[in-house]
């Protein structure tokens, strides 16, 4: 028996909107730790790791570890039917081939339940090693989204370089080239507007903008984004989910042949 009650249901709606274009089908894993997911896109270039900790739910009952295969597009369709202020409860019985999403309006005058068919998904969990990153950039998530969108109108790939000067995003395409440099800036009115750069070693890595643009669908989840880079390792683009957990996107770099 599984019953997870999330008062801020809009968080789950935003989570689905952020990953449904990158991943088609995925297993949601439920344990005493929380509600989580790890999945790769179909070409195995990017990986998404989601965690919603059990403490973040108003009610969290998970009698035994459960893995539920879901089509994320279908799940997003159902969650779209929840109001932004609705409380969402996820329910499943042991051995059942369905999951139920229950939506309650804040005033309790409208209660809906949507039952979705589960699916068998063959997916292997990958071990993500704990890494000390050479450079960690924290910046406003809207700024990062703007940069990825702007650069993708010029080129297909972005080179992200971190030096003492700041973080540079560069692209080249048929019509020309573009460079955007963001310097560390902590003298801002709101801490979330700051750009903070921690660098141990200079880093320069090349990535496909098609994927970074997918990641920025998570912008509504958090006002800041953290980009962790090490030479010759996948970049981690992390959006924290208010006191509950995170969505982390890992993207394999382009490597010189």
């Amino acid at each position: 028996m599984l019953e997870l009650r999330l008062v801020q249901g809009s968080l789950l709606k935003k989570v689905l909107e952020s990953i449904k274009e990158l991943v088609n089908d995925a297993n949601f894993d439920c344990s005493s730790t929380g509600f989580s997911l790890q999945a790769m896109d179909s070409s195995h270039v990017a990986l998404v790791a989601l965690l919603l900790r059990s403490e973040g739910f108003e009610h969290y009952r998970c009698d035994r570890n459960l893995s539920m295969g879901m089509n994320l597009n279908n799940m997003a369709k159902m969650l779209k039917c929840a109001g932004n202020d609705d409380i969402i409860t996820i329910k499943a019985d042991d051995g059942s081939d369905t999951v139920t999403f229950m939506f309650e309006s804040p005033t309790q005058d409208k209660i809906s339940d949507f039952e979705m068919k589960l699916m068998d998904i063959d997916s292997e969990h990958l071990g993500i090693p704990e890494a000390e990153y050479d450079a960690i950039v924290r910046m406003p998530s809207a700024e990062f989204a703007r940069i990825c969108k702007d650069l993708s109108s010029i080129g297909d790939t972005v080179v992200i370089s971190v030096t003492k000067e700041g973080v540079k995003f560069s692209t080249k395409g048929d019509i020309g080239a573009a460079n955007i440099v963001c310097r560390q800036n902590t003298t801002v009115d709101k801490p979330d507007d700051a750009t903070v750069i921690e660098m141990k070693e200079p880093v320069s890595l090349q990535f496909a903008l098609r994927y970074t643009n997918f990641f920025t669908k998570a912008t509504p989840l958090s006002s800041t984004v953290t980009i962790s880079l090490s030479n010759e390792l996948p970049v981690v683009v992390e959006y924290k989910i208010a006191e509950m957990g995170y969505v982390r996107f890992y993207l394999a770099p382009k490597i010189e042949e």
Partner: peptide, 14 residues
């Protein structure tokens, strides 16, 4: 030229 690497090149099975 550069080649797109895959995630499985870096992360192994858990």
């Amino acid at each position: 030229g550069s080649k797109q690497a895959t995630i499985t090149k870096f992360f192994g099975k858990a």
